[in-house]
Design a protein around this nucleic acid. Structure first.
Lengths: 158, 158
DNA sequence: TCTTACAGTTCCAAAAATGAACTGTCAATC
DNA sequence: GATTGACAGTTCATTTTTGGAACTGTAAGA
């Protein structure tokens, strides 16, 4: 989770990616849709390309111009987006209702995204999930603080 | 989405909430698990309480001490957490494998979270979803930039 | 009496974000 | 032929946020 947050955990990156999912591809498109400073936008796009979330593809020579397209790694962020949108729809709407409806092409209906268990297909509830250390576990609860500090260092290096 | 990001969109808030889901409740617990500065931790906890994601509950008098517990609104962030964890498990693991496994009590198996359509139950793919403006829509694509700038102002006010 | 646990608060320095203007290439317009 | 506008950035000064370290205050326990 900390590693994912290193990728998407700031005020703008998720909004940039939302624009990607809404088919924005070019610098000016992002900038005018979001009102982000050009400086930060350039920075964030570079970072996303470095991380393999976006691909930078030339669409004309001289002057060189590029489009930013989601890679598969980027497309895989879709569930995160939908989870965020859905929480906002549930807890942050004003009286007018949700700003955007989602239609599932397969069944033709407007839907909500639901998180289910890959094994039994039941909706997931926090209380029904227990965690235990996996092969890449960093240590016990007791060493979590230390690991957190190490992780921070390596984030800074990146 | 912008509104949700106003709540969880910074480097620490999601990590704090992860600790909440892992049953951390107290100031020192968060601080030592995350290595966050005490200053920021206090700030973020206050903000989460204001936003109704956490509840601040006294557990002893003199000196007054409080615990931070997820509200229902906070518990509803679970799918976002799981989506983030799952993306990390898929795209950011090192050779050792995932740090944490999740077991679904209902079926007893280790699982991955899957995002499905509430209407037909099929897994969601970005390409199969089309969006259209809902009742709370803020305007056309053309006015999105303006709205973004307004939204920023109100975030600053908060 | 001294130390430790706990939950913050205060203050200064460092890092990141913002705003506004500037650069450079080309196509289209006057 | 000179000027303007679209596009994709870069530069730089100013503000805002973070980070780090030390400090406050209450109470229990050695």
């Amino acid at each position: 989770m900390a590693r994912t947050i290193g990728v998407i955990g700031d005020r703008w990156t998720l909004l940039i990616l939302r624009e990607c999912f809404l088919r924005t591809r070019r610098f000016e498109g992002f900038q005018s849709a979001l009102g982000i400073t050009r400086h930060l936008l350039a920075e964030r796009l570079k970072k996303l390309v470095r991380q393999g979330v976006l691909r930078r593809i030339p669409y004309q020579e001289s002057p060189k111009r590029h489009e930013y397209i989601l890679t598969q790694k980027g497309l895989d962020l879709y569930p995160i987006m939908m989870a965020i949108v859905h929480w906002g729809d549930t807890h942050m709407v004003d009286t007018r209702g949700r700003p955007l409806l989602h239609e599932h092409r397969k069944c033709g209906k407007n839907f909500d995204p639901v998180m289910v268990c890959s094994e039994c297909g039941e909706p997931l509830l926090a209380k029904e999930v227990h965690t235990h250390p996996g092969p890449g576990a960093q240590g016990s609860l007791a060493t979590r603080g230390l690991e957190a500090r190490k992780a921070k260092k390596s984030r800074e290096a990146a």
